[in-house]
Design a protein around this nucleic acid. Structure first.
Lengths: 231, 231
DNA sequence: TTTTAGATCTCGGAG
DNA sequence: CTCCGAGGTCTAAAA
């Protein structure tokens, strides 16, 4: 990994065009040829970047016609796509290179799969008398998150999201259409369960007879403290 | 901006939990307190991070009970949310600090908004006699990208995407259902316009009577050269 | 401030 | 390989 602090301007030409005026920035060159251009603020997304695999070619001012004041130019070319990043360096402020080795990678806990497990274990949260049929009920067009039975014995298909968006309602609608063709299951009701449900998604869901439920995952996690076993 | 190369382990606790085993990584501390943990590979997303605003507190091994071999511990706490990043440093390999100043920021060209502006100005690209009704025509379920009238005076709803996917066809279908309930507008045709249209999206669109059009952004920008004044 | 939809999305998994 | 869905999404614009 190579770290450079430099006064530079940056241009990206590829799927779109983007330009960064002259300023001091961090240029981070990774072992796979990818380059990140970071300023001293903002979140983790760089101002500009080149995805790997890529190759970095350095053009010296003495070798070529560069703009006035440019010490050197970096041409970062994506190997797979027709994407190019051009960095004009006007002043080198810092330079260092380090061997990091390969990273063992990230271990995660608490994503949608865990929330699905929690709701399956506390299925009565959706209503008294609810019982679980199964999680990940497979259909021809994909798995239904949770299939359950309500107090009256009717089948209920549950789509689970962290944030309930229109896309999720569409997804559940497709499942319901399919499930309701199965005489052993029909009639199947739909429940759209999420931490937050967007107004537009709620309108669409209720227009289609799909029940909307907001879930308090923190409370659910508190009931089932096996979620904290990992750490 | 502070750059540290260190052998470290990292734990994030917040909306989820995530753990990084011991390895050599780049730790990037920005002026707003945000921290990025990068390895020497992958794309621009850090292995782990803390979003700004945040505060970094350093705990020395002499001041506290840290695990065996830990020289110091960084506790990065989000100011706004209950998110915490804990970095245990086992070995300092590099350290440097730089003053970057504020960045003038990125100038973009070629995103969906540009495409929409260009197509609105050159609406006759869709067919002779087409006229613009308006961009961002608001409905109860969201804005239609462009509403136009064809040579015969019929209303046309246009959904614009950079990459035409099934989602975009579904979106346009919803708009068409709604618009066709309005007797002042009905009948409304649909046009799905994108730089590229995925085969599955094209099949679905045409099955629903929606016309597909691919757009040449470069050519459209060439006609309206106000877009090129930026560079 | 909150909401909404795009993104050079990135990233991982399934087929 | 492509396609699809999730994300500690991030980001900017609009209400």
């Amino acid at each position: 990994m190579r770290l450079v602090i430099a006064k530079c301007s940056v241009d990206y030409v590829g799927r779109l065009k983007a330009h960064l005026p002259l300023a001091v920035r961090l240029l981070l060159v990774k072992a796979d040829g990818s380059v990140l251009v970071h300023s001293d603020g903002g979140s983790y997304k760089p101002l500009n970047w080149m995805s790997p695999p890529a190759t970095l070619r350095t053009v010296a001012a003495s070798d070529s016609e560069l703009e006035e004041g440019v010490l050197e130019q970096w041409v970062v070319q994506s190997t797979k796509q027709d994407d190019k990043l051009i960095i004009n360096i006007y002043e080198h402020i810092h330079e260092s290179t380090h061997d990091l080795g390969t990273d063992p990678g990230l271990i995660k806990d608490g994503v949608e799969a865990d929330l699905q497990r929690l709701l399956a274990a506390q299925i009565e949260l959706l209503g008294t008398g609810y019982t679980l049929i199964r999680r990940e009920y497979f259909t021809a067009i994909g798995p239904v998150d949770i299939l359950a039975r309500d107090a009256k014995g009717a089948t209920v298909a549950i789509e689970l999201k962290r944030r309930g968006d229109i896309d999720g309602v569409e997804q559940l609608t497709r499942y319901l259409e399919l499930l309701n063709r199965d005489p052993l299951l029909a009639p199947v009701r739909g429940v759209f369960a999420a931490q937050q449900i967007k107004p537009q998604a709620r309108v669409l869901a209720e227009d289609r007879g799909i029940e909307c439920r907001t879930l308090d995952y923190d409370a659910m996690r508190g009931v089932d403290d096996s979620a904290s076993r990992l750490f």
